[in-house]
Design a binder for these strands. Sequence first.
DNA 1: ATGAAAGCGCTAACAA
DNA 2: TTGTTAGCGCTTTCAT
Lengths: 334, 334
Amino acid sequence: MNSMRDVARLAGVSVATVSAVLNGKDTVSAGATRRVEEAMKALDYHPDQVARSLRVGRTNVIGMIVPDISNPFFSEIMRSVEEASEKKGFSVIMCDSNEDSGRERRHLSTLYSRRVDGVLLASSVSDAAQDRLTMRRFPIVFVDAIPVGTKYGAVIVDNLQGAHAATRHLIELGHSKVAIITGSLDRSVAIDRLEGYRKAMQEAGLVVADDYIKKGDFHVTSGYRCGIELMKSPEAPTAIFSCNNAMTLGLLRALADLSIPCPARVSVVGFDDADWATSFAPRITCVAQPTNEIGKVATEMLLEKILSRNGNHEPPNVVLQAELRVRESAMRLQ
Amino acid sequence: MNSMRDVARLAGVSVATVSAVLNGKDTVSAGATRRVEEAMKALDYHPDQVARSLRVGRTNVIGMIVPDISNPFFSEIMRSVEEASEKKGFSVIMCDSNEDSGRERRHLSTLYSRRVDGVLLASSVSDAAQDRLTMRRFPIVFVDAIPVGTKYGAVIVDNLQGAHAATRHLIELGHSKVAIITGSLDRSVAIDRLEGYRKAMQEAGLVVADDYIKKGDFHVTSGYRCGIELMKSPEAPTAIFSCNNAMTLGLLRALADLSIPCPARVSVVGFDDADWATSFAPRITCVAQPTNEIGKVATEMLLEKILSRNGNHEPPNVVLQAELRVRESAMRLQ
DNA sequence: ATGAAAGCGCTAACAA
DNA sequence: TTGTTAGCGCTTTCAT
């Protein structure tokens, strides 16, 4: 493993000069620069970022914590985070909290020990006190979900508006018996989506029957269970709004098992778009979240915070809009 | 930012003692241990892994490079890699090569500079010479795809057997007009799957018509295009084997667009299982790859290589079996 | 324009 | 059992 000293020796200069060349200082003579560069190439020299990090007090690494790496919603965000980071010379350590606040805290601690320059936190379970503490350690940008009351340093989606658009779409198609399969109601995103549904129903003067509000947990099985319960009840809805991709899959599985045709007998609108949404027959109408944008904006916000580490520069939350994509799984009530 | 010296001062001991406590050496007196631990807690001390890494020459970080972070096949592997790594105290830097060998090389170089202890490489485009060079830098375990001829240090799936099982299943259902939608044929996995198809066809004494071998590229659109071409041809097949999840989605979309019922008019078997596969009606018969196992085994192999950095301990390739999951998208030819 | 040397926070060899 | 100290590879003053 060659170090700067080896390069310096071969080039016949001091390590300071090698360092200067490496960092593009303009105080090095052309000759020295050339000799150093040749030596670096000859030795296949790769500067030790660990040593550099120790010295300059920055690692150019960020951490990202998500509740589930293999959930497409998060993996799409991760992809754009990685891309935006790489572009600025940052690497990213990916952590899966598995929706467990204990694991999340341990990851945060590890990342702190590794001296990452900042963290993107897509938390399923926010502990405001804990978060406040963590924010003293390094710059944090919250993604997707935020601790209640957070006004700064977060990139989120307008879940209320998205759910509202989905529900209103169903209502405009003539449906009044509209049910919702919610996410875990201890999560802000789930609450907001339920609220969007409620608002649209109320605006239309429709009663929201308790039986039409089915509590899911963002996972496939809960979508399945809620779908079965809904469609087996005597007052089955004619339209269902499902609050995320996994539960939509569960719902569709339920409809298939019950041989209930969609949209002929029940219309479906899902939250989150996905590759499979346009491969189903009918293609699934849904509210698409801008995953690429989320990752890109969050990364830029975090790097901005990191690089301008002077004043307590706190960027206000960025709220991205979700987009209703009208396809064929929701149709006019006959 | 508190350092060891702060802890040492507060505890009234030397930094060496603090270090010893931290590393669980049994040479420290009970009293000193207690005082050090109290001091660490009081100062919210988190040891600097950067400094430690520099000193001990190990970072406890591994890198993982995949062609596409947001592809479920890879994100599932990533999840189990992260889990297995975390369990052993390793963090993982995730890199997306975007199927570009240039980007892959740059990532490898960055990871080297960051002095990661090893790399998990799921390469879409293998450059044997390059790989050989890289392997001199740090331990590498190839995942999913391997440079041709690699006998050691790789975790792969028996693609030939998997494709063979899929094709044979179709044949056993009475199909003789069996088509295949292949992946990019410059990739070993794609070649092996095609080979498995060929083998099953030949064993059954069936001719493999050139028109039934459609070249896709592992992406949705190619599956769609191939599906359309196949079903619009005068000699349309009665069964199609699609070589990965994305192309299966494209194929299903094509069938929906053409209003061709599956499995009534054409049977489908896909490679890769997915959440959506059991939400379709019919549920999709497929060959499932053991993604969790892949990630787990690959991580263990890499950490093994890292921790036993003595003899040129080269573990032979591990070949995992893919499993045919019979559902309803492939049925007996009427 | 260049080099000598200090020091980032830690570990480990050695001394006491 | 504990402390002193060198040094990991780098950047950055400060001389020259």
